[in-house]
Design a binder for these strands. Sequence first.
RNA 1: GGAGCGGUGGCAGAGUCUGGUCGAUUGCACCGGUCUUGAAAACCGGAGGCCCGCAAGGGCCCGGGGGUUCGAAUCCCUCCCGCUCCGCCA
Length: 429
Amino acid sequence: MLDPRRLRTELDVLKKGLARRGVDTSVLDRAAAVDERQRHAVAKRDELRSQINVLSKEVGEAFRSGDKATGERKRDESKTLGEQEKQAEAEAKEAGDELREILLRIPNIPADDAPEGITAEDNVVVRTVGFDERRYDAHQRVPHWDIGAELGILDLERGAKLSGSGFPMFRGAGAAMLRALCQLALDRNADAFEEIRPPTLVRTETMVSTGHLPKFEIEAYHVERDDLWSIPTAEVPLTGQARDEILDADALPIRLMAYSPCFRREAGAAGRDTRGLLRVHEFDKVEIYAFCTPEQAGDVHAELLARAEGSLQALGLPYRVLDLAAGDLGDASRRTFDLEVYAPGADMWLEVSSISWCGDYQARRANVRYRTADGTAMVHTLNGSALATPRVWAALVETYRQPDGSVRIPDALAPYMRGVEVIGPPPPR
RNA sequence: GGAGCGGUGGCAGAGUCUGGUCGAUUGCACCGGUCUUGAAAACCGGAGGCCCGCAAGGGCCCGGGGGUUCGAAUCCCUCCCGCUCCGCCA
């Protein structure tokens, strides 16, 4: 959420920023008008309340001192003012609610150094690591859905039988590899990040705090009976757990990580790049996350990126780093680097991590502050996947497929797989 | 799921029956000072959050929302959360 004060102090700046996303900036004019209306109503209400407070005190004094006539007169006077106050209050509340409704749907202002452009085509490739097109042989040009079926480690049919398409079921070494990947990611970051295992069903307010509601309601699974939402990422509970808190500045940056399942309806993406594990409704992920001061945020952002890259490097997967164009940024983010691994079988770059600096956008929604020398200020929040399983799994089996059809397990991962070094064909079932 | 009790400032804990002088007593923690070679102790002082405003100042906040009243931490309704006991259960 944007700071409503900026609507009156730097409306132009906000408009320029939103325009870079390719968004209609007239909402800002609407918001500014409602803000103006709200402040007028509040001022009027406060003035009336001030008078009522004085009168009420006098009523009490008058009755106590036995001056019944004065007491009754002032009481009636106060009552009249009370009716006006009620009306002003109603206006203030109505305008306040409307302003919040508008603000909750306005995305964050992109950082100045976020690349220009409004589509994914405009994203800038910052660097490509470990990629050499010529290095791949025919045996690596097999898509993971075929490899998975062949080796009996991915059972999409049965996953669909259970829950529908987009709900993969893994078996045997394939299932173990998912756990191994998460364990690896957690272990690699445990030196600096506190591990959290949050709930994965959360309240509406929690989803609002990160920006996933109200605007993207269609993207989330909702449990109606209990009015709870399945989290699309651990970023949601990690942000929400600090809601309404004032953090100790000395404790910042606070680095957290969390393993969690993630649920996404992918409503807007039906039929697009959905084969195999390319786009699924449920998957496991290890998220790395930080609360920090605005001054620390740049460094922390770089740190999260380096951490996420580190896991891919450890697994020996070629990847590239994208600096997202202003228009391709998620709503909450002001600057995002995407990590994409190369999947030779599918011959695609797969997004496996989005490392986002959200500024105070989420902090304001969740009301997470820290103490400063002269008061409080909103923290900055940053998040990114340390490792998202299904796409990394896909890239792994494609990259490490050997001429005989088996899949070699990278050295870094083997210890987490009971020493398994190669996944061969399954025993007959 | 049933019954009972409770939610007050960073924490603990009064105040609620008997509405006004209660944004709120007290203790701990915290910050500054005195004393001390230094520290502790003791003593003195300071200190909640939010909104509007250049400021002066005003308004709001005792879990959330609504109501009664001239006036609500205090009375009423409702929702949420916590604890205890019972039931059920991985």
